[in-house]
């Protein structure tokens, strides 16, 4: 069965970059979210067993999404993909329970490696 995956990023270009970088043979059902609120809605609707999450987004940002998932003991596997690569952002994201932190520009190899390590492929 296809894995429900949500890509949350306010930039259409960025979402496209993630989509292109997904392994070709990974059976997924991709949903897109343009801000943190839509990302949370997607999680609630069961559209995000895996969530690729940007940090700087309007309305509700990526940190708040992680906070929400953390407080609700949600099992979504979150892989953060961020342009803010400062050590503090990485630490905060890890403490909030994200599985991996990937920096932008996204390298398809790094993404595949992360998915492999987490046990998704």
């Amino acid at each position: 069965m296809s894995v429900p995956v949500t890509i949350a990023d306010d930039s259409a270009f960025s979402r496209k970059t993630v989509m292109r970088a997904l392994p070709k043979d990974w059976d997924v059902l991709v949903h897109e979210a343009t801000n943190g609120k839509e990302a949370i809605d997607a999680v609630k609707a069961g559209l995000a067993d895996v969530l690729f999450l940007d940090l700087t987004m309007p309305e509700v940002d990526g940190f708040q999404v992680l906070q929400y998932l953390n407080e609700n003991h949600n099992k979504t596997i979150v892989i953060v993909i961020s342009a803010d690569i400062q050590p503090e952002a990485v630490e905060l994201v890890n403490s909030l329970g994200a599985y991996r932190f990937l920096k932008k520009p996204l390298s398809p190899n790094e993404l595949h490696q992360a998915l492999f390590e987490v046990g998704l492929i």
């Binding site: 930039s11 700087t56 342009a83 690569i85 932008k104």
Partner: peptide, 12 residues
Amino acid sequence: DVLQELMNISMG
């Protein structure tokens, strides 16, 4: 959108 995203990454 593309330009903004590229700038975002550069400033990061």
